[in-house]
Design a protein around this nucleic acid. Structure first.
Lengths: 225, 225
DNA sequence: CCCCGGCCTCAAGAACGCGTAAAAGCCGGA
DNA sequence: TCCGGCTTTTACGCGTTCTTGAGGCCGGGG
């Protein structure tokens, strides 16, 4: 769940935002002044901050600076000031966006989505397939089981990779043999039996009764998440 | 130098932006309709796009979609429409910011700086990779170990650089050979054994039991932090 | 009932890939 | 020309991985 820190000294704005954000599934934190905003940000590690510039204690730009000292999470500034100097100042201090009050809730939410989306695309660029008993990391080419790393041989990894890229789907014997052993060996289905036995020993909780590396007799194999 | 693609069908706006951006050291590309905008973007790989929504040929939202199909570079939308539905539509289509015309040049430039800054922090964040026993500085092309600088030959550095740019990831033998020795030598895997032995002697605490320059037999090598 | 095809398991020899060392080749600078 | 650093090549021991064959299990059909 995405968490948002709302910082404003006007309770009605905070309330309106809390209601709207909560209704859309965000986890909302709030603060009413700069000092507590910085504290809550450190504590709660929000994914995005909505910050009113007109706070009672600290100047808004200093709050931005205080956040930017240790984090690069998106900051969306709210402010009643419409002059461009204020916008420039805030943006150059490190804000990501600047919305003038009074603002449309739709617009603010859209800008918030944009900010979150941007940030998300940075972090989570790692395709990982997860099951109850093990985790396959396709980018790094690693398999972990109960936190422990499991070593796979090239052939074993070749099979796991194909299956993990087609989670839930049935992969025919011919396709597996073709892609791992090459077109010359599409009939050596014995290879598959040997290697699936090995994989189950390495990955399944109960190798005799596999729950993720499933055999579909006569057809092929399936990777069940 | 940061490059900006300006897309607008009003020549005076394009001219004004070109003058202002050039004066501030940006490399400016221009396009006057959606179709050519997409083409120029593919060709010139700009660092940020300033996009007018009211183009003569393609709807602005479709241009955004066309860009987002293959890139995540920041898109700043310019538009005369001030209603929030337009803003929401554009932002949800993948735009990063939305500025209404007429706009203040100061503000637009500030928003552009913000967009570029955000993106920069993502890409070349910290050209330094650190492990328990040595430090690789990609910008200066140097390796230090216990404060002492370790001299690497060009070939050795080539290998270290590729691995350090993919920390944790498994890099295939073929890729290493291809990038260091060229496409003619993608089968000389013996080179890799010789050079990894050398690198481990220079960088690992216990060269016989490497903890950072890991061999994955039959597959490739991995730089473990 | 037995047969048969498909599957699982086990084990052993062959083949392969790795690490290491050392020699040979290459090239630019003194 | 010689020297020193860097790269390429060769050789060998060793552990791992792949392949292959044999045997057992199970369910469906004759």
């Amino acid at each position: 769940m995405t968490s948002v820190l709302v910082v404003d000294d006007e309770p009605q704005i905070v309330r309106a935002l809390r209601i709207n954000l909560s209704a859309r599934g965000y986890d909302v934190m709030t603060a009413y002044d700069g000092r507590s905003a910085l504290g809550v940000a450190v504590e709660g590690k929000p994914d995005v901050v909505v910050l009113d510039l007109g706070l009672p204690d600290i100047d808004g730009v200093d709050v931005i600076a205080g956040l930017r000292g240790w984090t690069t999470i998106p900051i969306i500034v709210l402010s009643a000031r419409t002059d461009s100097s204020a916008k420039v100042e805030a943006l150059d201090a490190g804000a990501d966006d600047y919305v003038t009050k009074p603002f449309g809730m739709d617009e603010l939410l859209a800008r918030l989505r944009a900010a979150v989306r941007r940030n998300a695309s940075r972090e989570d660029c790692d395709p990982v397939v997860e099951t109850a008993s093990f985790v396959v990391d396709l980018a790094v080419k690693k398999v972990r089981r109960n936190g422990r790393e499991v070593h796979l041989t090239p052939t074993e990894w070749g099979l796991v990779e194909i299956l993990a890229r087609n989670p839930g789907r049935l992969v025919s014997q011919k396709q597996l043999l073709q892609e791992v052993w090459g077109p010359m060996h599409v009939n050596e289905s014995q290879y598959l039996r040997v290697y699936f036995a090995q994989l189950r020993r390495k990955l399944e909780d109960d190798p005799a009764r596999p729950r993720h590396l499933i055999t579909e007799p006569g057809m092929g194999y399936r990777f069940e998440v």
